[in-house]
């Protein structure tokens, strides 16, 4: 009796172990390929960049070199004899471009997302959303180049403005000269990242409980109060997610400032490019600047995970 009992117990134990193994095997098989991919092509390269960034002024032909914080102190430490405030200026400009284009995306994107999620006819909704992300199907290089032909002094926009001025007698509309200035960078970045903002806000607004808006109206709130007290607080995680995503991507963007920014729009991504492909070939400093960008972006992603609406990001 006791023998059969222990036998069944053993059997039970065997099944449990097998069960546990199966439980482990599933996730392992599912996560393995992606995990190896991330390890090989994200974690290891990032560690290599970190490694190179810790060798002051490393050039590609140098074999190794003494470790030190020289590259970082050159950027941040005002007491370093090699300190040059130009690097901080460049980082500041990147942050400034990213901030302005994030705000522009939010201001332009929120009404669109609101209309799509709440006011647009239901059967048209998917079609409209697809139409909105359609521009993402072309290369961002081509989209930036298209902006050159729109914004240049004899380009599409000025031709249109002149045509409009001629059409309305007595009105002389001013033409723009935005190409190769910060304005063109803002336009380019906002245009490029607006679809992301709209998608995330749409996903967030779609979940909005309409009955709450109706309840607010029934209780005497005017539309403005309803918007600020009910709609915005409920979609705040979506707003945070959209803003951070746009901020992160525009912070590291290379194409737009390079093609549209002209002579004065050095950003951190262009500076990194110059360190690797310029005359100094200072891969050490370039890697340090890359690490600074990676850390800034990681910080933003950490904030996104903590405060953002993860569901909307996933749905988008």
């Amino acid at each position: 009796m006791s023998a059969s009992l222990s036998k069944s117990r053993l059997q039970g134990l065997g099944t449990t172990i097998r069960h546990r193994c199966q439980q482990l095997l599933g996730p392992l098989a599912l996560l393995g390929p992606a995990g190896i991919w991330l390890l090989l092509f994200l974690v290891l390269p990032t560690l290599l960049i970190l490694d190179i960034s810790l060798v002051p002024d490393l050039r590609p032909e140098d074999v190794g070199g003494a470790y030190g914080l020289g590259n970082y102190s050159r950027v941040f430490n005002p007491f370093d004899p090699r300190f040059d405030s130009v690097y901080l200026q460049v980082i500041w400009r990147s942050v400034y471009y990213a901030t302005v284009s994030t705000i522009a995306c939010l201001v332009l994107g929120f009404p669109v997302a609101y209309w799509l999620a709440i006011m647009a006819p239901r059967r048209w909704r998917n079609f409209l959303v697809v139409a909105f992300i359609l521009p993402l199907w072309t290369s961002s290089l081509l989209r930036s180049y298209a902006w050159i032909s729109i914004l240049r002094p004899t380009g599409l926009l000025n031709t249109f403005i002149t045509w409009l001025s001629d059409l309305i007698p007595g009105v002389d509309l001013p033409t723009q000269n935005w190409l190769y200035s910060s304005a063109a960078v803002f336009v380019g970045l906002t245009y490029n990242f607006l679809p992301y903002m709209v998608l995330i806000l749409y996903a967030s607004l779609e979940k909005l409980d309409i009955s709450l808006l109706e309840a607010a109206a029934d209780l005497g709130a005017n539309p403005r109060q309803t918007f600020w007290k009910v709609t915005v607080p409920q979609t705040l995680p979506g707003i945070a997610a959209g803003c951070l995503l746009v901020f992160i991507t525009s912070m590291g963007d290379f194409v737009v400032p390079t093609l549209l920014g002209g002579a004065s729009s050095m950003t951190i991504s262009r500076l990194i490019y110059n360190q690797f492909l310029g005359i100094t070939r200072n891969w050490g400093l370039g890697s340090a600047l890359s690490m600074i960008l990676i850390l800034a972006v990681s910080l933003a992603i950490a904030l996104l995970l903590k405060y953002g609406d993860r569901d909307s990001v996933k749905e988008a």
Binding site: D84, V86, Q89, V90, R93, A263, S264, M266, R270, L271, N274, G278, I279, T280, N282
Partner: peptide, 13 residues
């Protein structure tokens, strides 16, 4: 080259 690069970075920034 480092001097050239330094002033070039400043000029373009």
């Amino acid at each position: 080259a480092a001097v050239f690069d330094e002033f070039w970075t400043r000029a373009t920034s």
